[in-house]
Amino acid sequence: MTTVVSNTRKTFVHAWWKPLLLIATVGLLGLFALGLGRDPTFMPSALVGRAVPDFELATLSAAGRTRSGDLAGNPLIINFWASWCGACRSEHDTLLKLGRELQGSGQVRILGINHRDTASNAERFLSSLGAFPYPSAIDADGRTGVDFGVFGLPETFFVDATGIVRARHIGPLNERDVSRYLAVIGVER
């Protein structure tokens, strides 16, 4: 009886070891190719699909405070920027254009968050490149940035009217990105 079992096992291994080895090799190569194709700097966002974090910050170049609660009820774009951030300069024109186009429409609100910066440097940055047509809040110690999971600037969050973060963009924004994200939070241009 035992010889029969061992014989079947032997024939099974004998017949299948080549296809099995081939499958394993192809599988490993596939995983390797997948790993090579991935961006090692890509970081999945924990915030997408969740409510926008609460914050209360001083407002740049204006009196009063900026509260997350006051911004609820409308789609919202939150852009983290700083005067020391080189990549922020390359998205500045896109933001100026977006601000001029959307700020008056009442469809969407835009808020800048000046991250780990000084108010004087931020104001100098805006006076040389053009002031945003929307307010900016001051996150000098970067604590609000941590709540958003921000780790590099610029970063932009797109929040829908119910206060849920629908998209996060890391790096400078361009026109095409903006159109794509606006559609996600239900804003028509």
């Binding site: 970081m43 999945p44 966002s45 924990a46 915030l47 941590v146 709540d147 958003f148 999971g149």
Partner: peptide, 8 residues
């Protein structure tokens, strides 16, 4: 940190 930056 996981709620802010994800399991990553």
């Amino acid at each position: 940190f996981v709620t802010r930056y994800g399991a990553f």
